[in-house]
Design a protein around this nucleic acid. Structure first.
Lengths: 200, 200
DNA sequence: CCGCATCCTCATGGATACTG
DNA sequence: CAGTATCCATGAGGATGCGG
């Protein structure tokens, strides 16, 4: 049901935000338009995706149903597992900045911060923010609340820089999770090998 | 890397136990032998699967590497998401009793029991047991410790019976998680719709 | 036997052109 | 903009072969 090629990637995009057909085409580099149409039809028939009329754009947007939203846990688990692969940053890999929204939530999941903080990132000319408070990851996207001081850079370079920096917990405990290189490190350090984040 | 057809299913099987080539062929109804061989080769090259010599069987068994084992979280999340589908029990669906081992762990994940208990199931003539204690799910498989009183039946019928029974928490708190119909209910009640298990 | 490799057929995916 | 239609390439499915 969600195992066909592209299906889970489409769902990942819709976990970030509802999107128009054209946005999905652009968000999923390499997807043939006929397959995108086919998968959306199948997922809609299965009750995972639904078409909505958006007055703002005066057109149809695709979004996840309540059931579809419950795939967040599974997608985030896959993101966590594959984060070491992202760090390798193959040259041919494409990148979309909004993918960091999913990555941030996935890797910060289960963590908390004594003071509410907002992690800010700027990649490829656009900004993303994720809030974290005592109860955990709170807000997914709040680009307008992005601080002035954020990381900037080409994604694969950022990803490589992010490997093996400051332990996540100490960064969060300092209450200074905001706008430093450590933030990005906390996000992309592989958790698999070290519960407290990379340390070398 | 794990998105090709059959790959995640192979990994699910190997999360249950290391297996021989022939066992995998039987565990994955419908898999063509050439594809199984191809996927095992790819997964081995990727460092997810490894071939081991098993003195017991005097032959090669396939198992997950440390990295591959970290896919448990992702696979269990997918199992949890799809458990409502399992409850529907389409007629054509095939079933292997060892899949209950994964389902048990996935659905009991995060729960605990004041007294250590062992959930026992008997399906298709074979038995499976999973232990649960104060710290959570503990032991995956312990067929020898299976109690006399277990559920028996054809899987799809059991799955249908399991829908909408006693709340999970009350069953566990009663300390009587052992050998009753409620056990099976606690395992297969969809968690998505109701934190305390189905109630109707 | 078990553990694959080979072969063939057909369904699916990929790229591009096209249309309401 | 939001998809269809078309065509070709690739991968899947199923049977069978074959060496250890």
């Amino acid at each position: 049901m969600v195992g066909e090629r592209w299906s889970l990637l489409i769902i990942r995009e819709l976990l970030i935000r509802p999107a128009r057909y054209g946005e999905l085409l652009d968000s999923l580099p390499g997807v043939p338009t006929n397959l995108l149409a086919d998968r959306l039809r199948r997922l809609e028939a299965a009750g995972v995706v639904e078409r909505r009329y958006d007055a703002e754009v005066e057109g149809v947007v695709y979004g996840l149903t309540a059931w579809g939203l419950e795939l967040r846990e599974a997608v985030e688990a896959l993101v966590r597992w594959s984060s070491p692969l992202m760090l390798q940053g193959r040259g041919k890999d494409t990148f979309r900045r909004q993918w960091l929204v999913i990555a941030l939530r996935a890797l910060l999941r289960g963590r908390s911060s004594p003071k509410p903080v907002t992690v800010g990132l700027e990649v490829e000319g656009a900004s993303i923010a994720v809030s974290l408070d005592r109860s955990g990851v709170d807000v997914t996207e709040a680009a307008d609340r992005l601080p002035a001081a954020t990381l900037r850079g080409e994604p694969s370079e950022l990803l490589r820089l992010a490997a093996g920096l400051v332990p996540v917990d100490s960064v969060i405990d300092s209450g200074n999770l905001y706008g430093s290189r450590d933030i990005f490190a906390s996000v992309f350090a592989p958790q698999a090998t070290d519960k407290h984040g990379a340390s070398t």
